[in-house]
Simulated assay, not measured.
Amino acid sequence: METQETPFKAALRSGMILGLISLVISYLVYFVDATLFASSWMLLLVALTFVLVLVFGFSYRKELGGYISFGAAFQFSFLTLIIAGVIGMIGQLLLYMVIDPALPQVLADQQMQNTMEIMESFGASDAMSTEQMDEMKQGFLDGYTVGGQLKAFGFALIIYAIIALILGAIIKRKEPTSSY
């Protein structure tokens, strides 16, 4: 009798693949133009993640015989996102702390510039004092520390849960039952 893979084992494999793909893309972006990390272009990486979890989820459902409950689909999706997120966070910390320790300053400057451009477009460029601007920039810099990355991952867990609910609903397929 063939044993079926548990949602955890399937998610571990899929999460590792997704995390490594994410790392490769992130490092390619770093080598091309590191300031892209501070742009909305990175939303494409989020969309790619969404699509890949669906592909992996449909593949897992097929392995299970074409049917999967919502609970198992949610578990699979959530665990896949968590594992990929941990791998991504470790890769980002390596980038910020070991490979290029000057990168957080570059990204914080870029984020500050982007924020100022947005404020200018709304006519609010003079609305902030120098102290407020310095505080905002320090907040951007703090996001690239270990603590900042862990805090962001904590918030990401909430987002992962919401996304996993959506993905679980898409991936699930009830086994047809005959009613007499």
Results as ranks from 00 to 15, higher is better:
residue 23 L to P: 08
residue 122 F to H: 14
residue 122 F to Y: 14
residue 111 Q to C: 08
residue 96 Y to K: 02
residue 12 L to T: 04
residue 40 S to H: 13
residue 39 S to N: 03
residue 48 L to I: 05
residue 147 G to E: 10
residue 108 A to C: 05
residue 144 Y to C: 03
residue 100 D to R: 07
residue 56 F to I: 01
residue 90 I to M: 11
residue 21 I to T: 02
residue 128 M to S: 07
residue 29 V to Q: 08
residue 157 L to K: 01
residue 93 L to A: 07
residue 87 I to S: 09
residue 179 S to V: 09
residue 109 D to W: 06
residue 60 Y to R: 00
residue 114 N to P: 10
residue 64 L to A: 05
residue 90 I to K: 04
residue 84 A to S: 14
residue 23 L to C: 12
residue 53 V to M: 08
residue 23 L to S: 12
residue 121 S to T: 12
residue 161 A to H: 00
residue 147 G to K: 04
residue 49 T to A: 11
residue 65 G to A: 08
residue 95 L to D: 02
residue 57 G to N: 01
residue 102 A to D: 13
residue 177 T to V: 06
residue 48 L to C: 09
residue 86 V to H: 03
residue 133 M to Q: 11
residue 147 G to N: 11
residue 49 T to L: 09
residue 113 Q to N: 13
residue 146 V to E: 08
residue 90 I to F: 13
residue 80 T to A: 07
residue 110 Q to T: 10
residue 96 Y to F: 14
residue 18 L to H: 04
residue 146 V to M: 13
residue 42 M to C: 07
residue 106 V to G: 06
residue 167 L to G: 02
residue 172 K to Q: 12
residue 82 I to L: 04
residue 87 I to R: 06
residue 110 Q to W: 09
residue 63 E to D: 13
residue 35 T to L: 04
residue 93 L to V: 04
residue 97 M to S: 11
residue 73 A to H: 00
residue 93 L to W: 08
residue 39 S to D: 02
residue 58 F to E: 04
residue 161 A to G: 02
residue 31 F to V: 11
residue 98 V to Y: 14
residue 89 M to I: 06
residue 4 Q to E: 02
residue 154 G to D: 04
residue 2 E to D: 13
residue 24 V to P: 00
residue 157 L to P: 00
residue 155 F to M: 13
residue 82 I to W: 02
residue 147 G to S: 09
residue 15 G to K: 03
residue 80 T to G: 01
residue 143 G to D: 03
residue 164 A to T: 05
residue 43 L to M: 14
residue 29 V to A: 08
residue 179 S to W: 15
residue 172 K to D: 03
residue 82 I to R: 01
residue 36 L to Q: 06
residue 130 T to A: 07
residue 20 L to A: 11
residue 131 E to I: 05
residue 61 R to M: 05
residue 175 E to M: 15
residue 18 L to N: 04
residue 166 I to S: 06
residue 5 E to M: 15
residue 105 Q to V: 13
residue 143 G to F: 09
residue 22 S to E: 10
residue 123 G to P: 15
residue 110 Q to G: 10
residue 112 M to T: 08
residue 60 Y to L: 03
residue 91 G to D: 04
residue 34 A to G: 12
residue 88 G to A: 07
residue 132 Q to H: 03
residue 65 G to V: 02
residue 82 I to C: 02
residue 108 A to V: 06
residue 80 T to R: 07
residue 120 E to Q: 10
residue 50 F to I: 11
residue 12 L to I: 05
residue 91 G to I: 03
residue 24 V to D: 14
residue 138 Q to V: 06
residue 120 E to D: 12
residue 34 A to I: 05
residue 33 D to G: 07
residue 86 V to K: 04
residue 134 D to F: 13
residue 103 L to H: 09
residue 79 L to Q: 12
